[in-house]
């Protein structure tokens, strides 16, 4: 069995971690590097940075923050938000990112997935999908933090993304994001069962029961968490211990020197 991964998602606007509800109504939370360091020392498996305004205003990104993070955070870092071109991807990887998450640019020109995958390997291409539930057990693909609708079907887009060379899917439920009301399990289950690459479930975790249920019923490979961590509702060791007691395989974490 694969080990289930715990990912801390840090949505960044300017120099601050922000947290909203359903990707809207952002509240400033503080210094991204401090958050990343704390979660690393607590034993998180990965850090995910999302520049949530870059896509909208076509400007700046997180590279300085990422460079700083690599000084003392020695776990994988994924960076997304506003990546448009192969040059953007190159610069992001050189700043210390291990993987890039791509969303809007891939919707506008799907071939960019293949280009990145061929240049750097599928393992560093995370296709980020913002999904909104529709009637009839379907989900639509959105972008720009859930504001813009594409008309594409989430399941089809996920499969197309994989065939173009995406190595991982970050699946965010726009409906559940920031609500702490639980995951869209059906969404995660449907996509995870249909693609051959790892799926990261994101959006809606409010308590340990939500995660337990998600892992048992929807079988994702990883979870990206923001709300429960940033508001101190749960700690990484709590989450890890809970999964382990439910016989979900997770890594054991030695203390940081």
């Amino acid at each position: 069995m694969r080990n289930f991964r715990l990912i801390a998602r840090l949505d960044v606007k300017g120099r601050n971690v922000v947290k909203g509800i359903q990707l809207e109504g952002l509240r400033k939370m503080g210094n991204p590097n401090e958050y990343a360091k704390k979660y690393y020392r607590d034993g998180i498996d990965e850090i995910l940075y999302m520049d949530i305004v870059a896509s909208l205003y076509e400007r700046g990104n997180l590279l300085d923050i990422v460079r700083e993070t690599t000084r003392d955070v020695f776990i994988p870092i994924t960076v997304g938000g506003g990546l448009r071109t192969l040059d953007d991807v190159t610069a992001t990887l050189r700043a210390g990112a291990d993987k890039i998450a791509i969303n809007t640019a891939a919707i506008k020109r799907p071939q960019i997935i293949r280009e990145i995958s061929e240049a750097f390997g599928a393992q560093c291409v995370v296709l980020s999908i913002e999904a909104k539930r529709e009637a009839g057990g379907r989900w639509s693909v959105y972008y720009d933090n859930g504001r813009e609708k594409t008309g594409m079907d989430v399941l089809e887009w996920a499969q197309q993304g994989c065939s173009l060379g995406a190595g991982e899917i970050l699946l965010t439920s726009v409906d559940q994001e920031g609500t702490a009301q639980g995951f869209d399990q059906e969404l995660v289950r449907t996509v995870a069962a249909a693609v051959s690459v790892p799926v990261i479930a994101c959006g809606g975790m409010g308590n340990l029961g939500h995660l337990d249920e998600l892992v048992r019923r929807a079988r994702p490979d990883a979870v990206a968490m923001a709300h429960v961590l940033h508001y101190g509702k749960l700690t990484v060791p709590d989450i890890r211990a809970s999964l382990r007691s439910g016989n979900v395989p997770v890594r054991s974490v030695p203390p940081c020197p």
Binding site: N3, R5, D45, G121, Q123, G167, E168, S196, V197, D221
Partner: peptide
């Protein structure tokens, strides 16, 4: 290999802690 000895599909890339 995309299939393991038990005949199950294997997710590739292998990403994670082992």
């Amino acid at each position: 290999p995309s299939v393991n000895p038990e005949g199950n599909c294997v997710k590739i890339p292998h990403i994670g802690w082992n």
